[in-house]
């Protein structure tokens, strides 16, 4: 059970002169649910996005299932670093799924086609098998009646559930959620959180960047508080959210007046 799925060492990310992530170490165990919290601009989303290489790490290494990703070499700037081939990254991303704040569904495909797309083009699944697996996932997120609808016709909450089904269909070992409810109207947040909660019950390995501290408390085995691009405090939900040790964490939590835990 204590097997490590992802191990990040000394992760850095720079955007030009801006140093956003400044040396993060993190281990994710199989079946673990981690909530990553922190103020806007703290670098928490960037850390998550480096995990499936939506952003290329500027420095540091990432291991998946004990295997170090990339090969040693000189990166674009000529500095020593790791290089990653497109094939390696695409294969990795089928194992580490992601759900975005803005859903990023394909507007020219129906709900069903959106979920089938990765199965057909990436996994080369047959059309029939893809359809039945996609339908299964869409049933799970409660959208069986929307199979032939286009994303533009759905509410934000429904679109986000489609996006979750799309990620699930690839049968990833790890799921990343990048502020999945931040762009939703308040009344639509609940339906998405319920779906995420149900996935947590299944024992999936999940990382969630969120501002919903109440949800984070119930969801997470472990909470990681990020400030200024480093892990400032980490521990169980109780430890970090209820009895934070460090001042900065306390100050951050104090800003959330109505705590649901």
């Amino acid at each position: 059970m204590d097997e490590t799925v992802i191990r990040i060492r000394n992760l850095h990310k720079r955007f030009g002169d801006l140093h956003v992530v400044k040396g993060v170490d993190l281990e994710v165990k199989r079946g673990e649910r981690i909530a990553i919290i922190g103020a806007s601009g703290s670098g928490k989303s960037t850390i998550l996005r480096c995990l499936n290489f939506m952003e290329m790490p500027s420095e540091g290494t990432i291991e998946l299932d004990g295997k170090l990703l990339g090969t040693e070499g000189r990166a674009n700037g000529g500095r020593a670093g790791r290089i990653y081939s497109e094939a390696e990254l695409c294969a990795l991303r089928t194992r580490v799924g992601m759900v975005f704040q803005q859903f990023n569904l394909f507007p020219h495909m129906t709900v069903l086609e959106n979920v089938m797309e990765g199965l057909i083009t990436v996994k080369r699944t047959s059309k029939d098998a893809a359809r039945s697996r996609a339908t299964e996932q869409l049933t799970k997120v409660g959208l069986l009646d929307k199979l032939d609808a286009y994303p533009g016709k759905l509410s934000g909450g429904q679109q986000q559930r489609v996006a979750i089904a799309r990620a699930l269909a690839m049968e990833p070992e790890v799921l990343l959620f990048d502020e999945p409810t931040s762009s939703l109207d308040p009344e639509l947040v609940g339906e998405v959180l319920r779906v995420i909660h149900a996935l947590a019950e299944e024992g999936r390995t999940m990382l969630l960047v969120t501002h919903e501290l109440g949800f984070a408390y119930h969801f997470a085995d472990r909470v990681v508080f990020i400030a200024d691009g480093v892990v400032h405090e980490t521990g169980t939900a109780d430890e970090v959210l209820k009895h934070p040790k460090r001042e900065r964490t306390q100050a951050f939590l104090a800003r959330f007046t109505e705590r649901a835990f």
């Binding site: 990795l92 975005f100 797309e117």
Partner: peptide, 10 residues
């Protein structure tokens, strides 16, 4: 990004 995240190549 949406396509990248499900493992699609460029």
């Amino acid at each position: 990004e949406g396509a990248k995240a499900i493992g699609m190549t460029r």
